[in-house]
Each structure stands twice: as C-alpha cells, then as structure tokens.
Design a binder for these strands. Structure first.
Length: 431
RNA sequence: GGAGAGGUGCUGGAGUGGUCGAACAGGGCUGCCUGCUAAGCAGUUACACGGCCAAAAGCUGUGUCGAGGGUUCGAAUCCCUCCCUCUCCGCCA
C-alpha cells in the first residue's frame, strides 16, 4: 500500500509508473473523492468539537443540579447531522481504500522497464549449464526409475499436482531443509522460526495476497483460515501492529514450512513432476530493515540464497525482474534461476524482493529509535532460501549419471547419513 | 466441545453513563540535591490521523481503554456480535 499523502501529491507520476508496470489506471476519480472526503471530514470534526464542548457543559450543569434540557435538545439535531456526515465520510473512505489497497508498489529506479520475463535483466552467473555425454533425463523420469518420486499415487490420494517422495527421495528433501536452515542460521545470522501454516485473512492482507489474489490461495471452508502460500506471510506478520526498536534492525528470520498454492490460471503449465505443485516445502528468508539500509539488505538476502546453490555446486544466474514481470508489492525483485538440464533452461528457484514500506504500511509494522521520537514504517524483504522441492529437482537433474543414478553433492552427504549416490533398484540388487 | 472469569497506557492496577486520555503505584526522561551509587525533592512521560505554519518548533481538531456494531445530548463504563487469554471438565497427536 502506498501512502495516501504520496498518492494525493503524485497522481501523474503514479499513472506513469503504473503504466510501466502494464497498468492503465486513471486516478482523477480518486482526486475528486479525496477532496470531497477532506471537505466533509473538516466539517464533521468541527461539529464533533461543538458536541464535545456541549457535553462537558451538560456534565457541569447536571453536577450543579441545573437544567440542561435546552442544550440536550440542540445536541440531538447536531448528533443526527454528525451521524449522517460520518456515514458519508465512511463511504468515501471505503472508496479511497479500495483504490489504495489495489495499487501495486512503485518500481525502484534501477528496475528495467519491460513487458514480460523476456525483458528481465541478467546481472550475474555462477557456473556453466551442465552438459552430459548422453541425453539428460527429467527429474520425473529419474525420480520414477529410482523409485523415489511417485506422482501416480500422489494423484490417487490427493489429485493432480501432488507428489509422493519415497525413501531417499523423502530423505533428500529433509536433508535439504536441514542443510538450508543450518547455513542460514549458522553462517548468515538468521533466527529460526516455526510458524503456523494456516493464517487469517488479516495476515494475507498485510503481505499483499489479499484482497486481490484470493484465487491463488486455498481457504478452509467455513472459517477465516487460509493455507499459507509461503512462509513470507506468517513471518512478516509476526510483527504486525507492532513498533520495533531501531536498534534491533535488521531482523532476519528463516523458516521451513509447507506452502500451498491453488495454481489457478496455470493449467497445463509445468505439469511434469513436482515443479509446480499445490503443496511444496520451502525455506524462506524474511528481513525487517531500516529504510536507510534495506537495499544493502536486499543484496545480502540475494547472496544468502545464492550461497546455497554455490555450496551445492548448482549453476545459476541472477536476473532483475523487469517492470512488467515483477510482483504486486515489489519495489525490486532479484530472481535467482537455477539451471535445469531436464528442461534445458534456467528456471526460477528464488525471488528476492524488497517491498520497501509497501507491506509495512498494510501490516502496520513500525520502528522507533530507543522508544523515542516519531515512528516510521520498516522495510520488509523476503526471498526463498531455497524451496526444497525445486532444489530437489535441480540436484537430481544436474547430478544425474549415465546409468540413471544420482550423485549426492559433498555438503549434503552428512545430512543423508553418508549416502553419496542414489542408485536404481536394479543396480542395488547387482551391487 | 461444555462451564466460569477476564481483556484498560511501557508495566501493575483503579475506574459501572458526564470536565476520563483515564486515579494511584512502578518504570522512563529532565532538573535539583549529591565524593560515587542509592535514596530524596520537583517536573515530565501514549499513539494515530487531520488543520494552521514555507518548514521546524509550536498551537489546534478528531479518534483510540481487545475488534466491530448499537443505545444516548454524551460510552472505558449499558446492550449485541466476534476475537483472544486464564481456570475447571471432556476429548486428543
């Protein structure tokens, strides 16, 4: 959410910036509503002032045992008028809020202008795309032949876009989660959190998923409970309606949670295997930063996610999402894209975003120096560090061998009880 | 799930219709006092959003006593709905 005063004073700039994001938006209606609202607000506040003074007077008169009937009569009509105006102001508030709440964030100046992901700007690479002397298989082919991934039974017990890991497939995912958490806690200074995987609508509003994107979410019937699409939601909302101490910033949190997405509107896309499932698990990084330092923190956050891929020896590149590709609340997003030999392309594995104060305004997360002075909104940031499912894919595809087995990267072996290779059942029998 | 008790400022805790944004105590801050510290004395101390002002300071208005509605000239106080916490019972990984 943008600041009302800012929107009011920068309507033209805003229309231009939103156009760069592919939004065509006329805000003159907003201007009218705003002016009308302020006019009525001034009026009703003046009347309330009269009423408050009269109330004091009535109280005094009654205490002295004198008659206050005359004033009370007068106040009746005044109160009716106040009630009427309050209602009008309330309606205008709703209209203004509707506009504000549905406005996306303004892109940072360093964000490239573009229409789609094709216009994203690559800023760095690590490693080279993995090449094989044989035809690379997909994670689905490898997973099924190794007996570690089972989409058929996932479909049976739940439906399309659900998978089941077996044996070392399950253990690999667990190893990844532990490895990620350990690295971020021990080497990058994050605090580990285990939040609920169900949140209320106020939380989803705070991070910007509601009201605009409810169709992407799973809601529990007959309740105000929603399954989280990412741990960003519970983590960022931990400090909703709180004022933090500036000395505690930046606050860096990490959590491993399941994530649930309805994937409405993505029918047919990425249907093979577990790349785009309704449920996946993810280690998420969230930061609360002082506005003066949020861009440094954004760089750090991105590097924290990259560090994982480097340790795993997975080739990747980092791109800046262009204005047409970036998310609703983002001021700037770095996409980390890992090389997937099964698809022959780089695919998103982490989006590291600085929201600036966009979420903080919605969620009312402030900070103050030493409990003194005026409070300000913090800047919030988040990114995956990393999704265990997509990393699972990347490992299986990049470390596949000609015989269909998969080598385990060195750093993961301690987490897998020393296992260095996932071999097909047949090979196991022979060996 | 059933029964009961509660939710007030940084904290504890008063307050059941009228100078209540809120007694009192603690804490914080400022000053005085003081070898140092502690104690003592005096003062001060919520937040949000508007308006005036070039701006800051300052002045000023409105709102906020879990949330939202209602009654009333007037609500922390009365009524309704919801949320949360605690105690006991039941159930349960």
């Amino acid at each position: 959410m943008l600041e009302l005063a800012f929107v009011r004073d920068h309507l033209e700039l805003l229309e231009q910036k939103l156009a760069e994001r592919g939004w065509s938006l006329k805000l003159d209606h907003f201007r009218e509503v705003d002016q009308q609202r302020r006019k009525l607000l001034t009026e009703v506040e003046g009347l309330k002032n009269q009423r408050n003074q009269a109330s004091d007077q009535i109280g005094r008169l009654k205490k002295e045992g004198r008659d206050a009937g005359g004033i009370i009569q007068e106040m009746k009509s005044l109160s009716d008028r106040i009630q009427l105006l309050d209602q009008e102001v309330g309606q205008l508030d709703v209209q203004m809020r509707e506009v504000l709440v549905n406005l996306p964030n303004i892109p940072h100046e360093s964000v490239p202008i573009g229409k789609s992901e094709k216009d994203n700007l690559e800023i760095r690479r690590f490693g080279e795309p993995t090449r094989f002397g044989f035809d690379a298989k997909t994670h689905l082919e490898l997973g099924e032949s190794l007996g570690i991934l089972d989409m058929e039974r996932g479909a049976k017990i739940a439906g399309a876009r659900f998978g089941v890991y077996w044996d070392l497939g399950a253990k690999l995912e667990r190893a990844l989660a532990n490895f990620f958490l350990d690295v971020h806690v021990q080497e990058h200074g994050y605090r580990e959190v285990l939040p609920p995987a169900i949140v209320n609508s106020a939380s989803l509003f705070g991070t910007g998923q509601l009201p605009k994107f409810s169709e992407d979410l799973f809601k529990l019937e007959g309740t105000d409970y929603w399954l989280i699409p990412t741990a960003e939601v519970p983590l960022t909302n931990l400090y909703r309606d709180e004022t933090l101490d500036a000395a505690d910033l930046p606050i860096s949190l990490v959590a491993y949670t399941p994530c649930f997405r309805s994937e409405a509107g993505s029918y047919g896309k990425d249907m093979k295997g577990i790349f785009r499932n309704h449920q996946f698990q993810k280690v998420e990084l969230v930061k609360f930063a002082h506005p003066e330092h949020s861009w440094e923190e954004h760089e750090k956050l991105t590097h924290d996610a990259e560090a994982i891929l480097q340790k795993l020896g997975l080739p990747y590149r980092v791109v800046i999402q262009c204005t047409g590709d970036m998310g609703f609340g983002s001021a700037k997003t770095h996409d980390v894209e890992v090389w997937l030999p099964g698809q022959g392309q780089y695919r998103e594995i982490s989006s590291c975003t600085n929201y600036e104060a966009f979420q903080a305004r919605r969620a009312n997360i402030r900070f103050r120096s030493g409990g003194k002075g005026k409070s300000e909104f913090v800047h919030t940031l988040n990114g995956s560090g990393l999704p265990t499912g997509r990393t699972w894919i990347a490992i299986v595809e990049n470390y596949q061998q000609e015989d269909g087995s998969v080598l385990i990267p060195e750093v993961l072996r301690p987490y897998l009880g020393g296992v260095d290779r996932i071999a097909p059942p047949a090979a196991l029998k022979k060996g």
